[in-house]
Each structure stands twice: as C-alpha cells, then as structure tokens.
C-alpha cells in the first residue's frame, strides 16, 4: 500500500467523520470543526491526486497542491467568519444551537 493510497483512505474517512460531526453535533463550534475535518479530507484527496500525477521530475503535480493551499486559506477565512458569527450570537442571544429553529415561521417583528 503506497502512502498515496493510504492518504486516500484517510481522506475518505475524514470526510465521513467530519460529515458525521457536522450532522449530529449540536454546538455550532463543533459543526465548524466538522466542516474543517471534511475540508482537510478533501484536501488530502487533492493530495493523492497530486501524488499520482508525479511527473516531469516533480514528486507531485503542482497544480492540485496550489489548489489545496488556496483552499486552506479559504477554509480558514470561513472558520473565522463562522466563529465571529457564533460569538456574536452568544453575545446577543445567549447560548443557542442550530438544532432548534431559532425563529418560528409566525414570528412577528
């Protein structure tokens, strides 16, 4: 089993794990963790794609690697925005989870 194949397994498993966390974890911050786990799993898949594309003297295809770097920065920005929202929500409304619908359909201004 090559490192790339193994990374493929890890990547797939991370997506599954992250998805589970995203679905079941009631706290928003844990959902953000779940999202990051899925994200890193996806990046790993890019990684093995890059590794399988080793050619022309490069140990890995540089294009997917560059995409991962871009992706990591985007994922960080997303986490930062999400965290800021969570913290602001706690400030304004106290502890809340996304599980319960925060506003009912009939809520009036």
């Amino acid at each position: 089993m090559t490192a790339a194949t193994l990374a493929g397994f890890i990547g797939s498993a991370l997506v599954g794990l992250g998805l589970y966390g995203l679905i079941t974890d009631p706290q928003p911050i844990r959902k953000i963790l779940g999202f990051n786990l899925i994200g890193s799993g996806v990046f790993l898949l890019f990684g093995i794609v890059a590794r399988k594309g080793a050619a022309a003297g490069f140990a890995a295809d540089p294009v997917p690697q560059a995409m991962v770097i871009t992706g990591i920065v985007v994922a960080f920005s997303a986490s930062a925005l999400a965290i800021a929202l969570v913290l602001r929500l706690y400030e304004v409304a106290g502890p809340v989870s996304l599980r319960s619908e925060h506003t009912s359909n009939k809520a009036e201004k």
Binding site: I32, A82, L85, A93, L98, H102, T103
Partner: peptide, 23 residues
C-alpha cells in the same frame, strides 16, 4: 439575534455545499 442565527445557518450550510462541490 434571529438574523445572526439565520446568517450562521446560511454560512454553515453553504460551506457544506462548497466542500461537497470541491470534493
């Protein structure tokens, strides 16, 4: 509070969507 909660839901679900797309 309700708009922040709505925004947070929106963000998290949209992020799920993007990560699926990226996959």
């Amino acid at each position: 509070a309700e708009t922040i909660s709505a925004a947070l839901r929106y963000l998290l679900f949209a992020l799920c969507g993007s990560v699926f797309y990226l996959l």
